[in-house]
């Protein structure tokens, strides 16, 4: 391969560079140990983060570190660059992936699970509506058998959660077991926005009544 630098703009199928020198990022694919673009857009090279602390693993033995710290090549669609303002709203659709932190609204609850609609994935507002599920065992990390869904979520609550599985045909499986995950915005039965008072309680500032929730740690 004589190519020294990858091109700045890419068309699907275009050769970007050898896999021995770059890692594939979003918008690229590997073919015969070469990186090719799979989207139309601008090519970005991300240098690897050097100051990467040792991976914290409590229960697992960490494998050998990544073979080599290669810069990552990615192709981002350049729809934002399009001059016409009418096309500005057009964003590339993203899908929730395992590990993403998402914002969702609770649609309905049952004793076993809370059904939610995923609204925001990472920093991107989703265009399509994807359905998610928080099962009773995924609400918190401790005392899992005492969790009651109606003491954790109510319909209408906005919840921050993590995607743990692509789930079944319709639902993504979500979890709120971490401290910073849980209800971030809710209204009381009287219709007032509530403020968090503890990890499991919200208070209606007007009436002073408490309601039970799995509350996200304010950040």
């Amino acid at each position: 391969m004589t190519t020294t630098t990858p091109p700045t703009l890419a068309i699907p199928g275009q050769l970007l560079g050898p896999a021995s020198r770059y890692q594939p990022g979003p918008g690229t694919h590997l073919h015969e140990s070469n990186l090719h673009a799979s989207l139309v857009g601008q090519v970005h090279i991300t240098q690897p983060a050097r100051a990467l602390g040792p991976a914290k693993r409590l229960t697992k033995i960490t494998p050998a570190p990544a073979p080599a710290e290669l810069p990552t090549l990615s192709v981002t669609p350049a729809t934002q660059l399009a001059s016409a303002p009418s096309r500005e709203k057009k964003k590339r659709e993203v899908l929730p992936e395992v590990g993403n932190v998402v914002l969702c609204r609770v649609i309905r609850i049952t004793p076993r699970q809370a059904v939610v609609a995923i609204l925001v994935c990472g920093d991107t507002v989703l265009e399509a509506e994807w359905q998610g599920l928080i099962r009773v065992q995924d609400v918190r990390a401790t005392e899992k058998d005492r969790v009651k869904i109606y003491e954790s979520f109510r319909p209408g609550d906005v919840v921050r959660a993590e995607v743990i599985s692509l789930g079944d045909q319709t639902n993504y499986y979500l979890s709120t077991t971490r401290n910073e995950l849980g209800v971030i915005s809710a209204v009381s039965e009287a219709g007032n926005t509530m403020v968090p008072v503890s990890w499991k309680e919200l208070m209606d500032p007007k009436s002073g009544l408490m309601e039970l929730r799995k509350v996200a740690q304010p950040q």
Partner: peptide
């Protein structure tokens, strides 16, 4: 390609 769906080639 306009929709931003990954393709191996055009």
């Amino acid at each position: 390609a306009d929709a931003g769906i990954d393709c191996v080639d055009t």
